[in-house]
Design a protein around this nucleic acid. Structure first.
Lengths: 259, 259
DNA sequence: CAGTGGTCTAGACCACACT
DNA sequence: GTGTGGTCTAGACCACTGC
């Protein structure tokens, strides 16, 4: 039962022996739970087995399962609810919608403004440029989906987004389905394509809009915009979306907490 | 020993009874440790007593102290080092310098570029405007220190910052001391004024520079800049600094990880 | 009431750093 | 070796949810 050293622990060989490769039990359990999440054994929004059940299944103590779940919860992959169970995190029906959108109104919050109006400007298939391919870990020339949309708050067009998705996982995505779906786009990706965005990285710059951008956002071409380039990842650090957002910041700002 | 309900637990009264005010033991321990940090019993960079010692001092088990320290570590107030001890976090001699600066070069990292060159452009005392006072939780007219400085990377002026500090805690801060000190500004605040910045919030916008800004950053007035307004807090959520940064993003970007 | 996650304890042992 | 944090266990009890 104290078998801390499962696989991957080669005590001595002619390997460089740089990484001792010691991995605590709870990390291994974490990996096993992750596999189950990835394989779809438990779907977004559903509850996973209780700590006791998992402890029995993996032949470890409840405390070890607990620590594994703790980490997955702090990674926002699971959500604990006392008295009810532990649930697979989802972008849908999450009390905090728009988990990855950090643009907020200067006064009030997103709820004050009511829901955003969304308009799909464009949605087409094309072949990945070298740049897009690199970002999505594809080969240049692979099929990708390109979407352009505008988000408006209180009737004011505020966000213009271009996004690129790998053609394979998102086969069948059309402008119609995007338009028909009400709710966060990442929720649609979950339910319709089984793609769960788990984390993302953003690179932010200040830019001036080109002609089409200034038209769609209804601002003069001299209006500086926030350029937000995001790469969103599923499990295994697999990039699944490249998104270039252009935010008007005349009555909104990008909010970030540092600690 | 099982006295979970210390103070603040009024089981029944004519109070609204909205918050049951149940606070687990480890939270109370966390509060006690926080008090010791705040009072300066353990100074930045020093080690705090071992878990066993703290457990004895507070009359709880090691596991309870452990959980309290865990939270303080994940809040970046403490740093654990296996085999050595637990240390009070500091902005100085931290392997990651510039903990709150999220501007990074498009290629490489801050180490590639070497250290930033710093120039204090201005440093003067004045009376707080209503706006500054509100941000720093002061009264309008209270004494504040205003500093303007420029950071250059590889000889290129990249960051222009205006910052405002409450006059009381920072009595004695001068341009000379700022210039003489080598290391992060927040490290100087720690060692010279006993002010430890613990967290911060930033509001980011895209703006065009005014004349003085474009001159100091050596860019044409039509160059969009990232405007980063930061309020930094010490313990108890006390704001201790308002900082308005203007970042050139032609060869750098603001990096943010979402999860 | 039973079932879930949440807290607390006590003890054993492991990995790491210093001496 | 000694002392530190890190892991793992087993068991008891508390708080919350829903039947």
């Amino acid at each position: 039962m104290n078998n801390h050293t499962t696989l991957a622990d080669t005590p001595s060989s002619d390997a460089p022996a740089l990484t001792p490769a010691f991995s605590p039990l709870y990390q291994q359990i974490k990996g096993l739970i992750l596999q189950s999440l990835q394989s779809g054994e438990w779907k977004p929004g559903e509850s996973i087995p209780s700590e006791m059940e998992l402890a029995a299944r993996f032949r470890v103590s409840q405390g070890t399962v607990r620590k594994a779940i703790d980490e997955l919860a702090s990674d926002n992959l699971l959500v604990r609810r006392q008295g009810k169970g532990t649930f697979v995190a989802t972008h849908a029906e999450q009390h905090v919608q728009y988990r990855f959108l950090k643009l907020v109104p200067d006064q009030g919050d997103l709820n004050t403004e009511g829901p955003a109006q969304r308009e799909i400007v464009d949605c087409k298939r094309l072949r990945a440029s070298a740049e897009i391919a690199r970002a999505l870990a594809l080969r240049a020339g692979d099929a990708v989906l390109q979407v352009r949309r505008v988000l408006s708050f209180a009737g004011v067009p505020t966000i213009l987004e271009d996004l690129w998705l790998p053609g394979g996982p998102f086969k069948g995505l059309t402008a119609e389905r995007l338009t028909a779906y009400h709710g966060p786009m990442y929720a649609l990706f979950e339910t319709e394509f089984g793609v769960r965005m788990v984390r993302a990285e953003e690179k932010i710059r200040a830019v001036l809009p080109d002609e089409s951008q200034s038209q769609l956002l209804q601002v003069p071409p001299s209006t500086p915009l926030l350029s937000v380039e995001r790469i969103a990842y599923t499990y295994n650090n697999t990039p699944m979306e490249l998104r270039r957002g252009f935010y008007r910041t005349d009555s909104h700002h990008y909010h970030n907490a540092l600690s």
